[in-house]
Design a protein around this nucleic acid. Sequence first.
DNA 1: TGCCCCATTGTTAGCGTTCACAGAGGTCAC
DNA 2: GTGACCTCTGTGAACGCTAACAATGGGGCA
Lengths: 351, 351
Amino acid sequence: MSQTAESTGPRRAPTMADVAKVAGVSHQTVSRVLSDHPNVRDTTRAEVQRAIEQLGYRRNSSARALVTRRTLTLGVVACNPTLFGPASTLFGLEEAARGEGYMVSAVTLRAYTAKALEDAIDHLSDWGVEGIVVIVPHRAAVDALAELRLPFPVVTVEGGHSLPISGVSVDQDLGARLATGHLLAAGHSTVWHVSGPSDWLEAEARVQGWRATLEEAGAEVPPPLVGDWTPLSGYRAGQELAGRVASGRARRNSPDVSAVFVANDQMALGVMRAFREAGLSVPGQVAIAGFDDIPEAEFFAPPLTTVRQDFAAVGKASISLLTSRLDSAARTEPERVVIEPRLIVRSSTVS
Amino acid sequence: MSQTAESTGPRRAPTMADVAKVAGVSHQTVSRVLSDHPNVRDTTRAEVQRAIEQLGYRRNSSARALVTRRTLTLGVVACNPTLFGPASTLFGLEEAARGEGYMVSAVTLRAYTAKALEDAIDHLSDWGVEGIVVIVPHRAAVDALAELRLPFPVVTVEGGHSLPISGVSVDQDLGARLATGHLLAAGHSTVWHVSGPSDWLEAEARVQGWRATLEEAGAEVPPPLVGDWTPLSGYRAGQELAGRVASGRARRNSPDVSAVFVANDQMALGVMRAFREAGLSVPGQVAIAGFDDIPEAEFFAPPLTTVRQDFAAVGKASISLLTSRLDSAARTEPERVVIEPRLIVRSSTVS
DNA sequence: TGCCCCATTGTTAGCGTTCACAGAGGTCAC
DNA sequence: GTGACCTCTGTGAACGCTAACAATGGGGCA
């Protein structure tokens, strides 16, 4: 960190010309030193370095960007960064971007509408980002994204594979299969499901994996309950399920509730609370599996079996996808990276 | 969202001059239209707008920043944005910044060292941020920050009040008093404490508030157990406390464990798990209060009494502090905003 | 009619870099 | 000795924008 000039008055930041004058060279030589050009005599280089130090000079990024046509800035559109998944992805992503010399500017989305997405991207464009990562696993948003023909590369995170856009995603289908399969293997005749909102791609993929696993095993497929990722919605779904347990098979011919696969850990927490309040023991009477492996999951009552997603890897992959497209100006085909989730078995499914 | 030129070839983005030519005016008139200058005839303005639309023109932010000496970019240094607090703050902060026409660039910190902080700030400086918000409530970091004499305004979040730097913080002391007082009022003879790492300012303030409350009530002050904010560390502390309950007063003359104030909700979760495993009922045998009110807290087993911090307000306040310093170039005295926390009583403290 | 003023538009000069090229001076081989 | 070539350095021209000023033309008022 260079010291700021301590002189009096609101003097302007020193420029390359100032450094050049102090070092007794031309501004171009200063530029060469700064960009590590080989053809600079060592003594000259030292002289310039000293002048830079002395003045506390910093290269003006705007001027540089203007002439090089590179802002070295990447944009990120994230939905709610308060959620563990997006936040972790952002974390890994920023680290990777910084490692490659880029700056990350993030914009969050208040609403999941095409308009909001456009506004966010507009905002980023105004600042001259070279490319963007969109972490908005929402169908409407992704569709809107496909409509936009943007002048820079775009990489989606959990954006599905239906569109010709590069993207990184965790294999949600596999994750759901792991969890559902695990429950079936434990001897449950079928597995209920509390899903995320149906317009979220991740939610849909998990439903699909869950359903396919049941069908392949010849198990009955109960109607999924729909939540909104929040613990509260899980709680409501849990109350509904607890009611079914109480009334037993009698009710509507639907199968026994002895195992539930919940589409994320937060909702699973809500489901468990509802069961607890209904006097149902987990896993004694009902086994529960979640998705995400948030840091708290291990400490739930009981510790939650869940599907771990490597969000840091997702973030890293999205940046490398983006920067590779930036470097090879050629419009290559969309690329996709799929990351495998892992089942973490804890006591919410095994007694 | 404007359309990108669909023409063939990798043509450069249109400039103001291009727009001017199409509209049949000078580039300066285009500039006037873009900055809503009043003295432009309506017909001319319309003409220019049409040309802009037609070409898909966007103002080059670098060129603009170069001449106006304003990048309209704010930097944020955040510690682990995976934690609920920092993430929520960032969320509120970004929204506020965007509202005021700024872009937010975030850098995350891997390590809590002065070096890491300097690197992060260096990185932001390289991109020409006009000011930064530092969300690193870590003593070493804040001290390091004070050493740096930066050429732009800095606002800390939870940076304490010992330094002459502007900052926003939640009244941690008050929060701890609320929680501790609540437990004392419920009839507990004293309250144990599981604190955060001692080099975190928030942790220290909470310890202070807790201790002061006990002393003022004439209650015994048990030695605080130290955690690291993670559920696991809470779990360990919980095991330790459970051991004390088991061995009763006999042990070391320390007071009964019938109430625990835990410095954050995640650790409280760990403590509760330890108690559960030790066969201790909450709140029957031990009452527990946390801090933060993470979304999950309401669904813990049992739902957790905790201290809610309005992180969104913190983020918003930090931006308004920062932008006000940006506008009034005058070096005014450091300002401080303190936000009051609120006690949320749930069943972990009342049976 | 003549003058001033205002609304509107254009012209010119930077902002602080990098790039392309030119020039100076030395080394080397013939 | 001289031309080719290499190393090092400097000069001038962009990059795309805004700010300051100049210029034009019309209206109002004496």
